[in-house]
Design a protein around this nucleic acid. Structure first.
Lengths: 157, 157
DNA sequence: GAATTCGGTCTCTTTTCGAGACTACTCTCG
DNA sequence: CGAGAGTAGTCTCGAAAAGAGACCGAATTC
């Protein structure tokens, strides 16, 4: 089971991707952000095989990204985004920005507008200190605490 | 081939994900952003099966995300990020932010620092008009030009 | 000229995926 | 009550994709 072991690496890009990186998971999340909560709604909107959907929803619940709620009034359960799941939104919007730029020859299919404003949601990468916009070229990686802990554990273990 | 057909949908989240959404592609890109350019380097760093890597690199080149460069001085070729590929960086950094927040109990393994500054790279979602920070709750979807063109094509076809 | 390196291919086994039938429970309506 | 519909979830089985690792050919090094 080599692939799953990647989740043990001290890398904050790799670890999420081991959970989220497959055909359907991000698409399921996209639907969740669009307000979808019922099993059949996910299934109909995406055309995902039912057993696959079952699997993915289960994994997302397991990781605390979705929360299973048994609706009060005898209705069927619902899958809702947790706080942790909600925090995934910038990832989807970053994907959207890229899609609009590079895969939408006819212009954006959907504008994601700011409520009560003419503007649109846009993802930016910036320095949290000086606020300057950044690209990959401006970034210098540097060991952080999680790496040291990991190295110590590896030495002991 | 139902899954690939998702790429035809007028959705700037779905379309990129059909290309990028699988086990390895984002991880390959992460390596590319870390400066990796050689086949064996990708393979060693990730532990990805060689045939799989071959496949993924090929697809990324096909989509103009990586560019195959035959090095001038008889050396082996290299895979480099195109402009289009380079534009994927915010997605990876958004994943990184989420990973740091939710999957790094010992703190971030790696800081992505702003060159010549004490700050760190951070992804933010904001309104491109008023500049205010946004979350999923502040977003209202609205039909854009790409959707209309799509609808017309569907009507004709 | 033997060994190595490198990118790449091939083969075979295992895993995952996809399609759709099937189950079980609830609700509704006559 | 009993038929029909809606919903969530399971099962089966053939197809596709992934994984491990051997193999190949060209260039490079020793």
């Amino acid at each position: 089971m080599r692939y799953e072991e990647l989740a043990d690496l001290p890398c904050s890009i790799t670890r999420p991707l081991v959970v989220l990186g497959d055909r359907w998971t991000f698409l399921v999340l996209k639907e969740a952000f669009a307000g979808v909560r019922r099993f059949n709604a996910f299934q109909n909107n995406l055309g995902i095989p039912r057993s696959r959907l079952q699997d993915r929803l289960g994994r997302l619940v397991e990781h605390g990204i979705l929360v299973r709620q048994q609706a009060a009034d005898g209705e069927h359960g619902e899958y809702r985004l947790s706080r942790k799941g909600h925090d995934l939104y910038p990832i989807l919007m970053a994907v959207k920005d890229w899609g609009d730029t590079h895969m939408a020859p006819d212009g954006p299919p959907v504008h994601y507008r700011h409520r009560d404003c003419t503007g649109e949601a846009r993802v930016t990468l910036a320095c949290d200190c000086c606020g300057e916009a950044m690209t990959a070229h401006d970034v210098v990686p540097e060991a952080g605490p999680g790496l040291l802990v990991h190295a110590e554990a590896a030495t002991r273990g």
